[in-house]
Amino acid sequence: MAKTLSKSSAGKSPADKNAPENPGRRDFIVVASYAMGAVGAAAFAWPVINQMNPAADTLALASIEVDVSKISEGQSITIKWRGKPVFIRHRTAAEIAAADEVDLAGLRDPETDEGRVARPEFLVVLGVCTHLGCVPLGQKVGEVRGEYDGWFCPCHGSHYDSSGRIRKGPAPTNLEVPPYEFTSDAVIRIG
């Protein structure tokens, strides 16, 4: 198309009389114009798409502090952080031991229990199934905890152990550990 264009217009326009019959240069101008157009369109597309990413106030969602001293052994609480549930379980000695004994070679997403806790008594994980984001069961007394005494996601049947590691079902990774630290003996800050 560029070629016919350059030929026909080179012949017709009087201003072009002295222009050399050079289709190569014409093509260059055409290609350069398309390229500029494409760059301009892309430069505009970016803000149009990027506005969908989290806004500054959403990103600024503060970190939260939780007093964990009130959680008795064997009990769990759920708190909300960044719109998601966070599970904090005060684990029993038996649960900690069970989590420790697991053979890493048999895990889908091998992580030691130690690597997932700041203090072994308190397990802090996001209550968001790593499969497709449901909230697993096992927080409340009487809820099913799955075959590995941790949590069970009813949506598509993922079983997590007492360290929040994926043991069975479609979820690919362990329950995520959010960034947190103990600011005192009793209080942790998440985020």
Partner: peptide
Amino acid sequence: TLLWGGFSV
């Protein structure tokens, strides 16, 4: 994250 515009729905 882009679809959500945040950290969750």
